[in-house]
């Protein structure tokens, strides 16, 4: 259940939290594009470090670090795969460029994780739902999205209660060979599914009782509005994007290489 922690929204208010989710999404996408555009170590490092003030402004450094930490395993795998492939293709030599390339690939991944986790940590799922709705997704889709987010902690809690109940009846999840272990999860999965179905029926009943789908065009009290700050952030973001494209096309980026020690 810890995997969700890095993505769970924390209700605080800050400059970043108050930005329109659509603007924040553009911001994350620009980071994404830039990370794809550059393969050099230097610009990627800059890209990662410019995000630090944002994290600081939003007061989510703890959660942000924990989501980076959980991406560590994947990052290591990316690094090693690139390293091995490079090592093999350069005739079994660990050259400095292989090492640099692997590092920048890993850095690119970490940058992406970092930017999207800022997005999720500072955007309330409610606002995200509204953003979906106002971007002309059907209301049902947006509603399903926010409801799913609302029930993640509830279901996680329920799963824990089921695990506790079955362990109390002597179930040992880590016992036996591979197949047996999969079977061990049946006593947990079945109640989880049965309860989820029961819960969804109850939810549907409650929704019906509150006139869900009564009118074709429902009112939206909390419609998102683009504010001055949003416009500013958008301009800055797009300027950076344009500037970066210029650099990419016309400027020679200084190469920083990681030196290797020849093993003989």
């Amino acid at each position: 259940m810890k995997a969700f922690e890095g993505l769970r929204f924390k209700r605080t208010s800050s400059f970043i939290h108050q930005l329109d989710p659509r603007v924040k999404f553009v911001l994350s996408c620009v980071v994404f594009i830039l990370a794809i555009m550059f393969t050099e170590l230097l610009p990627l490092t800059i890209l990662l470090s410019v995000q630090l003030p944002l994290v600081y402004l939003a007061h989510v450094h703890k959660e942000w670090l924990s989501s980076l930490r959980s991406s560590l395993i994947l990052a290591t795998m990316i690094f090693l795969t690139n390293l091995i492939v490079g090592y093999v293709s350069s005739e079994f030599q660990l050259t400095s460029s292989v090492l640099t390339y692997s590092s920048s690939m890993t850095l690119r991944f970490v940058t992406l994780v970092a930017s999207f986790s800022i997005f999720f940590l500072t955007t309330s799922p409610d606002d995200l739902g509204l953003a979906l709705e106002q971007s002309h997704f059907p209301y049902e889709f947006a509603f399903a999205f926010t409801t799913a987010v609302r029930f993640v902690p509830v279901l996680a809690n329920e799963a824990q209660m089921i695990i506790d109940a079955q362990k109390s009846r002597g179930l040992e999840l880590e016992k036996g060979n591979f197949l047996k272990r999969i079977r061990n999860y049946l006593p947990i999965l079945i109640p989880l599914i049965v309860n989820a179905i029961r819960r969804s029926l109850e939810l549907a009943e409650a929704m019906e009782s509150r006139a869900f789908g009564a009118k074709e065009h429902r009112t939206n009290l909390f419609a998102l509005k683009i504010k001055m700050n949003d416009v500013l952030v958008l301009i800055v973001t797009l300027t950076i994007l344009a500037f970066s494209i210029y650099i990419r096309l016309y400027v020679q980026i200084p190469i920083v290489e990681i030196p290797t020690f020849q093993i003989t």
């Binding site: 209660m161 109940a165 109390s168 002597g170 049946l186 109640p191 049965v194 309860n195």
Partner: peptide, 15 residues
């Protein structure tokens, strides 16, 4: 084996 714990919600264990 010595301490049997019966939870509040039976639906959390029947399968």
């Amino acid at each position: 084996k010595d301490v049997g714990l019966v939870f509040q919600n039976a639906d959390h264990q029947l399968f």
